[in-house]
Nucleic acid binder design. Structure first.
Lengths: 145, 145
DNA sequence: TAATAGTTGACAATATTACTAGGTTAAATC
DNA sequence: GATTTAACCTAGTAATATTGTCAACTATTA
């Protein structure tokens, strides 16, 4: 799992929608303004988010984007995966003929690391992040670590 | 903590040295060949690794790079930090005036995530990765998760 | 001492990715 | 129906990542 500003923008935007959602769609210009992200960039990100089925769109005035599932049903990892293709986790590309090959000693580390990060991010829903002072996340952290 | 291919290259190269080290320095062309990383790029990465004090270099024939500490004394996170500057973890840049501001709801998530990843990577040494079939890492994983 | 194998550093060149700008289309309101 | 608002699409530019080249400089070896 690759972690860049792109991932963060996508998550931030999704959080913004979840946070401000009151049944009505949220427009990208709104998000762009609130979160200080370029509108064009947001459009590209949301193109992917839509393709991945995470959001639905309504055109025209009053339109915008809505989460296609509940905020407690969308985890951070799927948002990131929607906009950022996976990082090749190993030099060998994860090929199975790489077992115990000294040319690919980092295979396991990156594999494991990827799994760890993904696990961490798969345990956190948009709703949990939004919940005041993030007590939910703190709980996760304390119990898991 | 930003995670990109660059980070992986650096870690992979360090692991290669640790793995092949028998008291003698390891040359970059060797690593480039074994790990399929461009020599030029390796040179740039090792320039940083040296500046950070993680490796020492020996010039001339038979020269190359050596770890400046034991492989069990170098953790993955410091390798990554040496080559990759930190990712801004939040849109607000972590400024303290951002508390409970709805414009920066993702603040805590990214902060926490960064800490988690760093913790994970700070618990793993080069030596642990190299140890056959990574039993050490598995142990860490099981106990922590 | 000459030749060689290696590091080191400075650039330039290319490739890939991040980000921006502008136009087109769809729906709503006036 | 004209205007507005917003999604959508197609580029372009800017920034990084990656590779390539060349010229010192250093130690080894013959």
């Amino acid at each position: 799992m690759k972690l860049t500003t792109k991932s963060r923008y996508a998550v931030t935007a999704m959080l913004d929608i979840a946070y401000h959602n009151k049944g009505n769609p949220i427009s990208l210009p709104e998000i762009a303004d609130r979160q200080n992200i370029s509108l064009s960039y947001l459009e590209q990100l949301f193109s992917r988010l839509k393709k991945s089925g995470l959001v639905e769109s309504i055109k025209g005035p009053g339109g915008g984007y809505m989460l296609s599932k509940g905020a407690d049903d969308i985890v951070i990892s799927e948002v990131i995966q929607a906009v950022d293709e996976d990082l090749e986790t190993t030099a060998c590309n994860g090929k199975s003929n790489c077992h115990n090959n000294h040319q690919c000693i980092s295979h396991n580390l990156w594999q494991d690391l990827g799994v760890e990060i993904k696990n961490f991010l798969s345990d956190i829903t948009l709703q949990q992040v939004i919940s005041k002072n993030n007590s939910d996340i703190k709980e996760i952290k304390l119990s898991e670590y």
